[in-house]
């Protein structure tokens, strides 16, 4: 365990190296570099269409790379190096191997994406039972613990349609946490919520950050970024325009970042 810990302290949780992504002729990401250390919170800011969500989806392999490399805990995502004919080539990982890589990452979506035909409890139990192969009793105990953590013990038997947006998003967070991920990815987790429901979701995320979870958060919540993030990244037009400590929100240097902040603050 101790060797793991030391390696965790030196190896980034996520490292993005010169990543490109194109959808047909649309070049969405144009050479992104990013390093996220274990136990830190990174907030990614930027206007719509700047490629923030695409970056998050690439880390979790919901999209395939057009160029560059992404490492999670030092291990390249989606491919492996093989020697063929004396040459170094990239070979795609199998579906099973990709699923195993994804298990280290928890993801929370803008539109919650809870399974509507299952109760809150069943949503949280689904992956532990059917992916991790844990017994139902154990998975239920774990799910109840995670639901308690997001303050929804009394909603366990409710279907998503019977929950508010904020409650649904908290169930979605519990669902991701139930797989015991090392890193949590949040894709605009509060953008689809009514303003009065944003606070409860951010509260859960604050607690999670305080507990030492490694988090990458795509968000429009400047207050959250300023208070909780260790690293702030501003993206625009498919590139990282400015990055640094949360101080940069108060003292931006790049003009594009200044313009963006003037719009949102």
């Amino acid at each position: 365990m101790s060797t793991q810990n030391t390696s965790h302290n030196t190896v980034p949780a996520v490292e993005v190296k010169d990543v490109h992504k194109a959808f047909g002729a649309l070049h969405v990401l144009k050479g992104i570099n990013l390093k996220v250390m274990p136990g830190t919170v990174t907030a990614i800011l930027g206007p719509s269409g700047s490629g923030k969500s695409t970056l998050l989806r690439l880390i979790n392999q919901l999209e395939t790379l057009s160029g560059g490399e992404i490492d999670v805990q030092g291990e390249m995502v989606g491919y492996r190096h093989v020697q063929r004919g004396g040459q170094d080539r990239l070979q795609e990982l199998t579906e099973k191997e990709i699923a195993a890589q994804r298990a280290k990452l928890g993801m929370v979506f803008q539109r919650f994406n809870l399974f509507p035909h299952m109760t809150a409890l069943q949503n949280v139990m689904e992956a532990p039972v059917h992916v991790a192969g844990i017994s139902k009793a154990e998975a239920k105990a774990r799910a109840e613990k995670e639901l308690a953590r997001v303050g929804l013990s009394d909603r366990a038997e409710h279907y998503p349609a019977e929950l508010s947006g904020g409650q649904q998003q908290r169930v979605a967070i519990a669902r991701a946490l139930a797989m015991d991920p090392d890193i949590m990815l949040f894709d605009e987790p509060t953008s689809a919520l009514d303003p009065e429901l944003v606070g409860e979701v951010l509260g859960v995320m604050r607690d999670l950050a305080a507990a030492g979870m490694t988090m990458i958060v795509v968000t429009h919540e400047m207050g959250f970024a300023r208070e909780v993030a260790d690293q702030v990244v501003f993206m625009d037009g498919g590139v990282v325009v400015e990055s640094g400590t949360p101080e940069i929100i108060a003292h931006p240097t790049e003009q594009r970042f200044k313009d963006f902040l003037a719009h949102v603050l």
């Binding site: 990452l105 994406n113 399974f115 992956a127 991701a176």
Partner: peptide, 13 residues
């Protein structure tokens, strides 16, 4: 989004 959420949880096709 349902399939994506399931994929993100490590579920296979």
């Amino acid at each position: 989004g349902q399939g994506e959420a399931a994929q993100a949880l490590g579920m296979r096709r």
